[in-house]
């Protein structure tokens, strides 16, 4: 068994949580590889030490204190326990919301049709699609700014005809400033503001959105939040083809690493569809290959680097890179 794979399985080997064949392979690797053996002994010694000296006993007075604390509390009424257990699946807030929803539906159903008041809203004025410009361009003073919709929309190569209009002093549509992926920083917050519709001279860029020179500041975006239980995303991949997961598996293989799914199990590639267009893939890449990863990912489609992958975790020897895959056919 490859040393990299055996090292990744040391913990499961200690707990006997591997299939029989992998247990034997890890045992062989430990026997053959001195460094792996040393690492295994170190981890095992630490685990056994904690197991032996970790448990502690409650203080002598603890039981008495607990029973005194619950002495005044009423015991459950056995007659109604089954009701409480039946409803314990649902939170009281959820039940309250459901009751309100049912009441509203019933009232809406029984209310006579001819007593309803309908108001007609004028159709909103059509909004001119904002021009998209490259992030490196400073927007001249006075130009209103709108937020880029969504996260990480790749810029088509659109030459902004609005630049010429701006130079002529004509009012133009709001310019959407796209974030340059290379300029993304760690924990800056998204600034929000209501952008008034420009009318001649009545346009502005808020003070906090300007550089000291008076040009509009490059906006940065919060990195995609870590999903509970998973690490932070390093890359967002917009694949060109539905078999992107297979492609990611191949990328990992070419770099000498592995591809895992969001639960840490070996990735079983399946085609992405309109209904199932989203996946989290964890690529475990040898540190020496991490520089080639982004180039490899770009062969599969559009790539946004949210944050650079971290260093290799100790004892693993590979860098875990989280890739969020969003397939938009």
């Amino acid at each position: 068994m490859d040393e990299f794979f055996a090292r990744n399985r040391l913990s499961a080997y200690i707990d006997g949580e591997l299939p029989d064949n992998e247990m034997a392979e890890v045992a062989n690797s430990i026997e053959e590889n001195e460094e792996l053996r040393r690492e295994y002994k170190e981890v095992l010694a630490a685990v056994e030490f904690v197991r032996r000296h970790g448990p502690v006993s409650a203080p002598a007075r603890f039981h008495r204190n607990v029973m005194q604390a619950v002495d005044d509390l009423p015991l459950p009424d056995a007659r109604f326990s089954w009701i409480r257990r039946a409803f314990s699946r649902f939170s009281w807030e959820g039940l309250a919301v459901a009751a309100v929803a049912v009441t509203v539906l019933v009232l809406a159903w029984v209310a006579p049709q001819n007593h309803r008041q309908q108001t007609v809203q004028p159709a909103p004025a059509p909004v001119e699609a904002p021009a998209v410009v490259d992030a490196g361009t400073d927007v001249p003073e006075g130009e209103p700014v709108a937020e880029a919709p969504g996260v990480g929309v790749l810029p088509p190569d659109v030459a902004s005809s609005d630049l010429e209009a701006r130079g002529a002093g004509e009012p133009t549509a709001p310019v959407v400033r796209l974030v340059d992926p290379e300029r993304r920083t760690g924990a800056s917050t998204r600034r929000t503001a209501s952008i008034p519709t420009p009318t001649g001279d009545d346009v502005y860029v808020p003070d906090w959105d300007r550089n000291p020179e008076g040009t509009a500041r490059v906006e940065t975006v919060q990195p995609a939040p870590a999903v509970a239980g998973l690490g932070p995303v390093s890359y967002i991949l917009y694949p060109n083809y539905p078999d992107a997961l297979k492609g990611l598996s191949d990328v990992a293989y070419r770099l000498g690493g592995t591809a895992l799914d969001g639960s840490g199990e070996a990735l079983v590639p399946s085609d992405l569809t309109i209904e199932k267009n989203h996946a989290r893939v964890i690529l475990q890449v040898p540190p020496a290959q991490i520089g080639s990863l982004e180039t490899q990912l770009k062969t599969l489609g559009g790539v946004i680097c949210v944050q650079a992958p971290g260093p290799a975790a100790p004892g693993i020897g590979a860098i875990s890179v989280h890739v969020e895959v969003l397939y938009e056919p």
């Binding site: 685990v47 639960s263 004892g315």
Partner: peptide, 22 residues
């Protein structure tokens, strides 16, 4: 409230750090 695979990978890293600390 996490998947079993997360428990395995988290435990693996935690034990590595524990071994370093001890």
């Amino acid at each position: 409230g996490v998947p079993r695979g997360t428990v395995k990978s988290r435990l693996h890293r935690a034990r590595g750090e524990l071994a370093k600390a001890l």
